[in-house]
């Protein structure tokens, strides 16, 4: 016992000595570098609550921030992936804030405002931009939210047009579907009503079949739900369920139904089956807001909501696959409605 105690102690000393050297080595060049720079550096951390691979919305976030950074010599952007475990996000953003060397932390998704707001209580000088989220009144946080009602309205209006049309797989019965990964405030308060209202305006009397997968990854559950909805008469489906979307798509291909893609353009995923797409221009929005922050022009503390009028939410009508698979009459009615909304 005594013998081993000595070795342990010896090892601890060696360990601490090594650490000291490491810390010194780490700090010196960085400090020197900072002193030489004429213009103060501006560092941006982009926190991805998930991974960029396979997630267009986060990919756009990263690209938008990077593009803004690239326009200035003294601005750098770090893309940091946080992984899909929600329980780890608070700790990870906190540790970025704790380093104190990032002037701005940019992140995105509706859940982030509550996390960032909490962190902001502890790290009171850290500035944040949260895209796709909403929070008012914290002087260090700027949020930008996309008008989900409008986006869902566009999808719903188009779905109404299709289900009432004489397209190949449209069936009689005026019934469309919405599949959500989970129920959450935006889903219940904005998306579902928007979808429903859009469909009503396009084809009065259209019923919406709404179902929930229960998570954001289970494709087989998504497929099962979609199959049930199709056999119950729905002929156009709007999946908003993350990875489960692909299950929905599969069911639609197998059982001859149509799919509308949400948040990004999805025509290429299944030409002729995905016949409509709504899109958020997250890259553009991120680019503009980050750039404004760098220039000191962003109103931190405020919350913006943007939609069709501002050009950050749109229905993708310029894709050749859209023109190829949707009859002209339906397209025209859709374009007509969009131009009304833009005014």
């Amino acid at each position: 016992m005594k013998f081993s105690g000595i070795t342990l102690k010896g090892r601890m000393i060696a360990f601490l000595a090594m650490l000291t050297i490491m810390v010194l080595a780490a700090e010196t060049p960085a400090a020197a570098g900072r002193a030489e720079e004429p213009q103060q550096r501006y560092r941006i951390a982009v926190f991805i609550p998930g991974v960029t691979a396979g997630s267009p919305i986060y990919d756009m976030l990263a690209r938008g921030a990077q593009r803004a950074a690239d326009e200035f010599d003294h601005v750098t952007a770090n893309i940091i992936e946080g992984g899909t475990n929600q329980g780890e996000w608070t700790g990870k953003i906190s540790s970025i804030a704790a380093q104190g060397d990032h002037d701005l932390i940019v992140t995105s998704n509706p859940a982030m405002p509550e996390i960032v707001n909490e962190i902001s209580q502890r790290f009171t000088t850290q500035k944040f931009i949260v895209m796709d989220g909403h929070l008012e009144g914290n002087p260090n946080i700027y949020t930008l939210r996309y008008d989900q009602y409008q986006q869902a309205y566009l999808a719903g209006y188009f779905a109404g047009l299709v289900t009432a049309s004489s397209m190949d797989h449209s069936r009689s019965g005026l019934r469309i579907g919405l599949i959500a990964g989970q129920e959450y405030p935006d889903m219940n308060r904005s998306i579902l009503p928007g979808y429903r209202d859009g469909a009503q305006d396009a084809a009065p009397g259209t019923a919406v079949d709404f179902r929930v997968v229960g998570n954001w990854y289970d494709a087989s559950k998504g497929k099962e739900l979609a199959r049930e909805m199709i056999s119950a008469g729905a002929d156009v489906l709007l999946p908003i369920s993350g990875g489960a979307n692909y299950g929905v798509l599969e069911a639609a291909i197998e059982h001859n139904a149509y799919v509308i893609w949400y948040d990004t353009s999805g025509y290429y995923k299944a030409p002729g089956v995905v016949i409509g797409s709504t899109e958020l221009l997250q890259d553009e929005a991120t680019y503009m807001k980050v750039k404004a922050a760098v220039l000191g022009e962003l109103p931190f503390g405020s919350a913006e909501t943007v939609g069709v009028e501002e050009g950050f939410v749109r229905f993708v009508s310029d894709d050749p696959l859209f023109e190829a698979h949707v009859p002209e009459e339906v397209r025209n009615r859709m374009m007509e409605r969009i131009s009304q909304m833009q005014q």
Partner: peptide, 12 residues
């Protein structure tokens, strides 16, 4: 996690 926060180390 420190390496991920500072340098271009991916989550994977």
């Amino acid at each position: 996690s420190s390496a991920m926060a500072g340098a271009a180390v991916t989550y994977d």
